Structures are given as C-alpha cells and as structure tokens.
Simulated scan of single mutants.
Amino acid sequence: MLPYAMNWADLLLRWLHVIVAIAWIGSSFYFVWLDNSLEKPTDPELKARGVDGELWAVHGGGFYNPQKYRVAPKNLPQHLHWFYWESYSTWLSGFALLCVLYFYHAGIFIVDPRVFAWSSPGYAVAAMLGFLVVGWLVYDGICRVFGQGKNGDLTVGILVAVYVLIAAWLACHLFAGRAAFLIIGAMLGSSMSANVFFWIIPGQRRVVAAMRAGQTPDPMDGKRGKQRSVHNTYFTLPVLFAMLSNHYSFVYDAPNNWMVLVLMMLAGALIRQFFVLKHKGAWKWQYWIVGGGLIMAVAVALAPKPQPSLANAKPITFAQVQHIVQERCLLCHSGAAASKGVRLDSASDIVSHAQAIYQQVVVLKAMPLNNATQMTDLERAEIGQWIKDGAKP
C-alpha cells in the first residue's frame, strides 16, 4: 500500500504546487506590469497625498484605480494585504514534492551511474540540498556586493548568469538529467522565495513599523525590495521551463544537456525582458527574435535521428518482446502501483501500450528511466520492429 499512498501524495502535492505557483507568478507578473504602466498623477490632491503613479483599468464589469505612493501614504490604513503566502506555499509544496518524488526514490530518479557513480543515494540527496543552500548564498552574496552603484543591476545580471551556467554544468555531471534540470529550477525558485522571506517582506514590515511609530521610513527598504522583485520576474520563465522539462526526456537526456538547459533558460529570460519593456511602451522585438531563435536552434539540434533497422528481416515474435519487457520494464510497470498507471505485466497491456512504448523506448529512449535495467540498443530495435510489423500478440 505504501507505493499507492506515495502516488497519491505525488498527485496531491503536485496539484497544490501548481495552484499556489499560479497565484504567486500571477501576482508577480501583475505587479511588474502595474509598476511599468503607472502614469504620473495630474490631480493636485493626489500629488499632495504622495501618490507617485496611478492607473485606471476596467476588468470584470468594474473600474479600478490602483495608486502607488513614493514610500508610503501619510496616513497608513489599518488593513493591509501582504503578498507572501503565495511564495511560501509554492516553496513548501515544491520542497515536499521534491522529497516525495525524488528524495524518496533517490536511487532511481537522482542517481544515474552513467553520469556519476554515487557511493550512496543519500550523498546524492545531500548534494541536491547543497545546491539549494549554496545557490541562495551565492546569489544573495552577488546582490549584496555588486548590486549597488550605477551599473549594479547589469553586473549582478551577468554574474548570476555565469553562476547559473556553472551550476547547470555541475548538476548535469552529478545527477540524472531529469533531476539535474529540476534542481537548477528549484535552486532559482528557492532564491525567489528567499528574496520574499529575507528582503521584500522584512523591508515592507520596517516601513510599516516606522509609519506606525510616526517616523520617516527608510526609502532603501523599498528600493532593495523592488530590486529583488525585479530579479524574481526574470527568474520566472527559466524556472518554469526547468520544472516542466522533467516530462520531456528528449530535453534532459540530450547530449550536453547542461547547454540545452542554459540556452532554454536564457531564451525565457530574453522573452520576459521583451514583455517588461513592452509594459514601459518600448517594443524591442530583438529580444523575442533572439529568444525564439535560441529555442529553434535547440529544437533542431535535438531532432531525433532515424532509427536503425535490424540487419535481418526475420519477424520479431511477441514472445521475444514480452521477454524484454519482463527483464527491463516490470521493475516499475507491474501491479496496481505501476509507475504512471502503466502496467505491462500481461500480453494485453503490452499490446495496448504499444505506441507509447515505441515513443518512450525506441524513439526517445527515455525508458527505462536512466536505463536502470540496462536495455540494449538491439532490444530497442527489436521492440521497434515488432511494433512496425503491427504489434501482434
């Protein structure tokens, strides 16, 4: 029953993670758009109140007039909505999912002997946790040391990009491709949530406390919080790609997969830059062109090669295929708790899943996962030939 319970934990945590991530990313995108769409007020009364920008909008049958103050309003309202539960819930649900799906099955999902021969799955788990902690410390250190001055944002952007490149290369040489992509996404996602926890919310709390005490808030709190919030918006699309990529083995199992990850994340950041500038009224299509070009280049480079045919024309029998499946696939695809609900422990199951088997085993070579059961190219070719011949039992 434990595997069945873990499948439910995986499903429910994944569901929760997606829901709260939508809430977090949605609010993040909205406020970046709002900041870049505000107009200077012309009403003397608004200026006297300290309003630095406002916007009139219509949505859902109503009219809205959001206003932004330079630091804070002179008379602080008693009720304030704090945007932080979306961030914390996303990180907590994501980390729980990481534990249930990857750490619990570390020997299968994290360790790939073809990449790095860990002496124990526990060491691989510890290394992945290290990526989360060190990733935040390095990123935060870069922001603290180089984030000031006229060209601080550009310097931070370059240094963070270099660090992500190094981290991606290292992860892809330590972990199975699927886990490597995921941990880089989790590393950036953890830094995003840590920005909220360590910088954005504490700065906002200090501003509120100063206002409550009748003191002048420190404008640096708002400036630092804004800086980290902007970083978060550029991390968003790269993180989303890294998280979604674990469903597409042709990406994470590709040769030089670290380069694939870096280029796709760069494309995401460039496309996000286009939209950030668009909100300011500047249509810089070159960001879309370069980002789209990178995606196309990666897609062409990863295009599957034609599958070799068997040397002899002798038909492959179902008995041969069933023997291969029993040897290489039943470790994960048997019984009620079969991975992804795909059972291959009967003749009818194998026949009914023939096309999926062909795609995952022959074309993409994604299964067995990390080739844990050492399926040979000859065996893949035999399965492919049997399916091409009609997949007859």
Rank of each mutant, 00 (worst) to 15 (best):
L263Y: 01
V230C: 05
F235T: 05
V251Q: 02
N256M: 03
S249Y: 11
D221L: 04
F241I: 14
Q227K: 12
G225K: 01
L266R: 02
K278E: 12
K280Y: 02
K226C: 08
H231F: 13
R272W: 08
F250D: 03
F250S: 07
S249A: 14
Y252L: 00
F250T: 10
F235N: 11
K278S: 14
F250N: 10
L244M: 09
V251G: 00
R224I: 15
A267R: 11
S229Q: 06
K280V: 01
F235H: 09
F275P: 00
R272N: 07
L277A: 11
K223I: 15
P238F: 11
G222M: 06
M243V: 10
V251H: 04
V262W: 11
L237N: 04
Y234Q: 01
V260T: 07
F241A: 05
L266E: 03
H247G: 04
G268L: 06
M220E: 12
L277I: 00
N257K: 07
D253E: 09
H279T: 10
V230N: 11
K226W: 00
N256G: 00
L277G: 07
V262G: 01
G281N: 02
I271L: 14
L266H: 02
Y234R: 03
M264Y: 08
Y234P: 00
K280A: 12
Q227I: 00
S249V: 09
Y234W: 12
M259F: 12
N256Q: 05
M220H: 05
S249W: 12
G281R: 09
F241T: 10
F235K: 06
W258G: 13
H279S: 14
M265K: 02
P238I: 12
F275W: 15
Y234N: 01
P238H: 08
N256E: 06
F250L: 06
T233H: 04
R272A: 13
V230P: 00
W258C: 03
Q227E: 10
K226Y: 07
Y248P: 00
M264C: 11
P238L: 08
D253L: 07
A269G: 11
R228I: 04
Y248Q: 01
R224N: 09
G281Y: 11
A242V: 06
L266P: 01
K226F: 14
G225C: 07
P238E: 08
H279N: 12
V230L: 15
P255I: 00
K226T: 11
L263K: 03
L240K: 00
V276E: 05
L240I: 12
G225F: 08
S249F: 05
V260E: 00
H231L: 15
H247D: 09
L270C: 05
M265F: 04
V276L: 10
